[in-house]
């Protein structure tokens, strides 16, 4: 375990929305080229933890936090740390597919263009590689100028993955990326996530134990804002040390 450079470390993170205490003293880390699943029942703070990592919680004005989140050793909430740089290094895929109301091509080039890539050939290359990585290229290569919202739900979600990959972030956050999709599309995206592990550090929020078992290397189990267990997924699921984890795995809570 020690031969990994931790891309993201969370130390004693507590968060509040207004007076509501969401995360309670979370400490964990996310290793390179692994998939970490954040599990737990609804409302336990899974998404809040994920959104703390790319500072998307900052959009909510009542958000407060204590503790430290380190990205490559730097405090992302520290003064002088650019949130825009952070987000180009940490991509995100959302629960519901949310392609921009533009063409397939423009969805992919949006990010690179923002960060100054103007060369048409280079953009074309980014479109192709991103879509290939997201296993969507073969399905849309002839319709790159078609509106993205016309794609099917599963295709839209893979387009969103491609869009996140377009700026080549080392870390990918995924917030229940398949829960809004049909089983076939979900399976496709799960396979894709496992494949992406070779090049990316992936942090996956899920409330589906089977999914966590299928795709993740290590898991964090959250319950009511507390980090109950954090270890290799196999160990947690085969021999949970906490009764709450066991209750969740066996389906008694959640």
């Amino acid at each position: 375990m020690s031969n990994f450079e931790h891309h993201i470390e969370v130390h004693n993170l507590s968060t509040w929305f207004g007076k509501k205490h969401i995360l309670k003293d979370i400490t964990c880390y996310f290793k390179d080229n692994t998939i970490t699943a954040i599990m737990g029942p609804s409302g336990c703070g899974k998404s809040t933890l994920l959104r703390s990592l790319n500072r998307l919680n900052d959009l909510v004005p009542s958000f407060r936090h204590t503790g430290i989140v380190l990205f490559r050793g730097e405090d992302i909430y520290g003064p002088g740390f650019s949130v825009y740089d952070l987000r180009t290094h940490i991509g995100m895929v959302f629960q519901k597919p949310n392609p921009f109301p533009m063409s397939v091509r423009d969805n992919i080039t949006y990010g690179p263009k923002l960060h100054g890539t103007k060369d048409e050939d280079e953009l074309e290359k980014i479109v192709e590689t991103s879509l290939k990585k997201a296993a969507l290229w073969d399905e849309v290569k002839d319709d790159l100028d078609h509106p993205a919202p016309n794609l099917s739900g599963g295709q839209q979600q893979r387009l969103c993955i491609a869009r996140a990959l377009s700026v080549d972030p080392p870390v990918l956050l995924m917030d229940e990326p398949v829960s809004a999709l049909d089983p076939i599309s979900a399976t496709k995206i799960e396979e894709l996530i496992v494949e992406l592990k070779n090049d990316y550090t992936i942090i996956l929020v899920t409330h589906n134990v089977q999914q966590a078992f299928r795709v993740s290397d290590q898991s964090a189990f959250l319950y009511l804002g507390e980090l109950v267990e954090f270890d290799e997924t196999k160990r947690i699921l085969e021999a949970p040390t906490d009764s709450r984890t066991e209750a969740f795995i066996t389906g008694r809570i959640g």
Binding site: N54, L59, Y84, F94, N98, H115, R163
Partner: peptide, 14 residues
């Protein structure tokens, strides 16, 4: 939808 704004911000857009 809010999620469109979030998608753009999550790409590092201002």
């Amino acid at each position: 939808p809010m999620s469109l704004r979030e998608a753009s911000l999550a790409l590092g857009a201002t």
